[in-house]
Design a protein around this nucleic acid. Structure first.
Lengths: 200, 200
DNA sequence: AAGTTTTTTGAACACTGTTCAATTGGAGTC
DNA sequence: GACTCCAATTGAACAGTGTTCAAAAAACTT
């Protein structure tokens, strides 16, 4: 069936996502161009649009890949022997963002063209990442009921995220003080301590 | 001198920023178009580029306006009689973001074309906003030295910001639980309590 | 070899930010 | 009023974007 080379559809999909991630890492979300991705892998723009129906679809696939890599990174950090698993998570969060700044930012700064929410399959991948954190929060706070764990987890992720994004873009010039990572970790520790000693 | 109407240069500047903010509020940063702004105020695209040398320049002017309005909003909330000034700040932060979602997000999602930092005059305006918060942090923690106040302030702003952006984009689906505002306020209170009882 | 089906193409369209030679129209001078 | 002068204003032109889709190409089927 008219294949130009011996790429199956899913191989081609992976090829595009890989090259897309490479370009995203190089030029960032603003200058990212689907045309360029196609050109770089030696296919025409039309082929790319046959695989991913739209720019949103391509970007979603790229961000999904970044998210799974991020989850994997967190799990690795947790697997590395070390007592303080909460610290491992917070440091892992920052590490990945610092190592992949433009891809990481794209997760947050890409929005669907129609302004609507991301599709379910994508949100499931986000949920996986949250799940990794929630498991550790639950382990540290055994007396907390599941709903409260999820609620606190989201608040902690939000806290760390805020520090991380301010650190990457120095809009608020977080540099030149106790590293943002440590500030984030301090906030997380305080929140956990409060949850422990609070409504016990 | 060839004026088409009786707009002085700074009146024209304000006219563009106002219409730009209106369009930004309507369509968001992604679909924002300098051409459309020009068309809407009845000037050509060329005139707009004579006033603001680039898209970045226009966007910075728009964001600067948003920032000063935001600062004003916080000061108003602080001026409204009420004991808990920290809560007023946190609630004011969220209020403004929720009332001006697209303009607020643009502050964070616009980046200079060359990837560099924003010009000094712009950063000064950001500094003003931080200053409003820092003053309250200092008031609540009188024993803290100025450098520590600034450091803690940035951490607290980062914390609140993280909750706020997760609330606006429901990427992480913060809804359906204790409102994100209250979670953010809880984190801030814990941090302040820790700073009070910590290295005292 | 002929026919069928799937993949691939790239010109075409409507849009973007940006530039800059040409035009416009008010101010000053005679 | 006529005539410069010059800043303000214009908009076609350029290189780029995402998107579409009739046509071409390539592989599979009979």
């Amino acid at each position: 069936m008219g294949r130009r080379s011996d790429h199956t559809r899913s191989e081609l999909e992976a090829l595009i996502v890989d090259e897309g991630r490479r370009q995203l890492a190089e030029v960032g979300l603003t200058r990212f161009s689907a045309r360029d991705v196609a050109k770089r892998i030696g296919y025409s723009i039309g082929t790319l649009y046959n695989v991913f129906a739209s720019y949103d679809g391509l970007m979603l696939a790229i961000n999904a890949r970044t998210l799974t890599l991020w989850s994997a990174h967190l799990r690795e950090r947790l697997a590395a022997r070390g007592e303080d698993r909460i610290a491992a998570l917070v440091r892992g969060y920052f590490e990945f963002a610092v190592q992949n700044p433009r891809a990481w930012v794209a997760i947050y700064e890409h929005h669907m063209a129609d302004g609507g929410p991301a599709p379910d399959w994508y949100q499931a991948i986000v949920g996986e990442l949250i799940g990794v954190v929630a498991a550790e929060v639950a382990a540290v706070l055994p007396s907390l009921e599941p709903a409260a764990v999820l609620s606190l987890t989201r608040s902690l992720v939000a806290t760390v995220h805020g520090h991380c994004i301010f650190a990457l873009y120095r809009t608020f010039d977080m540099l030149g003080e106790t590293a943002p990572v440590e500030a984030a970790l301090a906030r997380v520790r305080e929140a956990i301590a409060a949850a422990r000693g609070g409504p016990a």
